[in-house]
Amino acid sequence: MDSINKAVLDLKRLDLLANNDSSIHRLDARAKVLVTCVFIICIVSYGRYELAALFPFFIFPAVIIALADLPPLFIARKIALLCPFVLVVGMFNPVFDREVLLHLGSFAVSGGWVSFASIVVRSILTVGAAFILVGVTGFTAVCQALERLGMPQVFAVQLLFLYRYIFVLTEEAGRASRARELRACGKKGLGIRSFSSLIGHLLLRTWQRAERIHMAMLARGFTGAFHAHRQSHFGKSELMFVLGWSTLFIFLRLQNASQLLGKLVTGLFP
């Protein structure tokens, strides 16, 4: 099944990005999680017709992508697969909100289109922030950061286990699904009946795997507790990173930088 393999390859590629070594990668994961949160909250706190004010925030992904040496086209391609639900819901804005909000020359633009554009830009920024966070931090480190920020250990362990076995199980599912497709001549045989027995088998094998893993854990003295030790410290550079970016975000949130710059320039050449 091509789509599964593609999805897995994408996942692996994003996962491997976290192995890069850069000033951003070396920062404590907590700093990056916090900055990403501030960023997203600032973005979503804008009113629905806010569009121009959102653009200055592109400075964050641009700078981080550059400093951390992430592949910009890959990130852009991933962002381009924007959640279709958002677009569908967003498309209704121009339908319901026809009041003219601004004129571009002789072109009247309705509030609906402005808010639709705003939704798209928000999506790009928030979704991009999530990808960048994973790309510069890695899933494991994000989980550990969240745990140190107060997430219960049970849930942290769950996330780590899930992530570990995603790679094993997506490959297994991909193989099973490929076998089914190869024998489903002309799309027949891809219905619910074959699906459910395929999923059923996959589920039983998964269950047995869980039993074997449990065995392996017991064999190494597992008694229910996870001992993790990780030296990471929230030092000066982390503090600078968090304070610097947060200040910038809040400044941008309070001052419409696009407007300011635009005024400056149009003022120069009136």
Partner: peptide
């Protein structure tokens, strides 16, 4: 000490 057949069952940590 027990080494299982499928190392994916034995290596479960990050």
């Amino acid at each position: 000490g027990m080494v299982f057949q499928d190392p994916d069952d034995q290596l479960f940590m990050p």
